[in-house]
Simulated scan of single mutants.
Amino acid sequence: MRTAVTVVGLAIVLAILGFLFRDDLFPGQQPRVEETAPSKQAASEPKPSIDSQIDSQAEAFIAKLTKTQAQPIPAKNADHFVSKDQIISLLPESIIERTTQKDIGRNPALKPDTPITLIREVDQVETMTPEKIIAEAGGDLNKILRVLDGDKVRELSVREVLQRYAANPYDDISIVKKIQYFEITTPAEIALDKSLAPGQELKIITKPYRLEAATIAELLMREGKFSPDSIFYVRTIRESDNQGIWGIIYDGILTNFAQGMAIRRGKEMNTYKIDIPRDADELLTDRSSSFLGRLIHKKASESHVYNFRKNRMGKNPDIVSPGQEIVIINFEPDELIGIYKHFVAEQG
């Protein structure tokens, strides 16, 4: 009997202990809790470094500086950084005579039926976007344009045009251009032309001529290979070029880099301008060559001089003929970008 009571007592104790510690002895399934994935915060894009910004600005600057112009550049007044595809007009200015209707009739060398060429100029309206205006101006913000505004023609600088149309940067703008065309005629026909005033200045050609033009690549075809990406500085030699090829390259770099280039970034239009010190090509205080001096020395020794009167290419930078020759200097894009970056860094 006592044994039975003991067994029952143990059973009760075990039952009580089992009830009290049931969670530890018989773990059940806990309610499932969905873990929320950590929210992904949009990683902010790292801001471009100052160096990368300058690189981008420099590349855009050079791209605008060397934009191929739609019209041929006259050899008699070239001063441009251009690509190999830029066309140079080689028609000598000397064959164009300035005269009047009356003087043509009085000229004993011209018979009534003598064939002559009359160079006429007419106004032509061309619609252009601000982007195209910048490209054709070569980035020169001070270039004067004639803009058709309603029924009036206004003379505005490229800068003023960009400011006026800043709110609508993709709208077309009506630009009035002077277009030349060559008309074969005779003194007799000119005398009867009622559209010409008796005292009006006329441009005529009385000598045999050819309308000649060539790209930079064609002019340099026999002078050896150059990179497809080469950029050429083309400049007519002038009477004032008393410092030779060195001075021509130096002035070309300073002038073209200082004129200010309007560069579009998205919807924004910004002007980039590099003022290169006038003494940037001189020796440094330790008598070593400056950055620009070394570059100009190299380019002067590699220069080509083309005589467009004699159709002859030469490489002697010490013998030049003002008004008859153009200097052609080959730059690699990295060299021009290097100029931009060097002087931006110097200016801080």
Rank of each mutant, 00 (worst) to 15 (best):
residue 48 P to L: 14
residue 346 E to A: 11
residue 205 I to F: 08
residue 125 V to I: 15
residue 291 F to C: 09
residue 293 G to R: 05
residue 165 Y to R: 12
residue 107 N to E: 13
residue 271 T to D: 08
residue 140 D to C: 06
residue 303 S to G: 10
residue 193 D to N: 14
residue 243 Q to M: 09
residue 294 R to A: 10
residue 251 D to M: 14
residue 321 S to R: 05
residue 172 D to M: 06
residue 69 Q to R: 15
residue 215 T to E: 09
residue 42 A to H: 12
residue 278 R to S: 14
residue 267 K to W: 04
residue 255 T to S: 12
residue 299 K to N: 10
residue 75 A to E: 02
residue 204 I to E: 04
residue 229 D to A: 13
residue 211 L to E: 00
residue 216 I to L: 10
residue 213 A to I: 01
residue 336 L to P: 01
residue 266 G to M: 04
residue 19 F to C: 09
residue 128 M to F: 02
residue 187 P to Q: 06
residue 97 E to Y: 04
residue 145 L to C: 01
residue 69 Q to W: 09
residue 168 N to P: 00
residue 277 P to T: 12
residue 149 D to A: 10
residue 99 T to P: 00
residue 132 K to V: 08
residue 99 T to A: 04
residue 237 I to V: 15
residue 7 V to A: 09
residue 84 K to A: 15
residue 265 R to D: 12
residue 56 S to T: 14
residue 255 T to N: 13
residue 123 D to T: 06
residue 77 N to S: 13
residue 241 D to Q: 11
residue 23 D to Y: 09
residue 218 E to M: 07
residue 21 F to E: 15
residue 182 F to S: 01
residue 253 I to A: 07
residue 226 F to V: 05
residue 164 R to I: 05
residue 122 V to T: 15
residue 287 R to L: 13
residue 297 H to C: 00
residue 170 Y to K: 01
residue 253 I to N: 02
residue 150 G to T: 08
residue 166 A to T: 11
residue 58 A to P: 14
residue 83 S to I: 00
residue 203 K to M: 08
residue 186 T to R: 05
residue 87 I to P: 00
residue 277 P to W: 14
residue 202 L to R: 04
residue 49 S to I: 11
residue 185 T to M: 05
residue 245 I to A: 10
residue 269 M to P: 00
residue 298 K to T: 13
residue 318 D to G: 13
residue 214 A to Y: 03
residue 347 Q to H: 13
residue 339 I to L: 09
residue 99 T to K: 04
residue 54 I to M: 11
residue 261 M to A: 08
residue 333 P to H: 10
residue 345 A to I: 05
residue 17 L to P: 02
residue 109 A to R: 06
residue 176 V to Q: 06
residue 131 E to C: 00
residue 307 N to V: 08
residue 343 F to V: 02
residue 315 K to S: 12
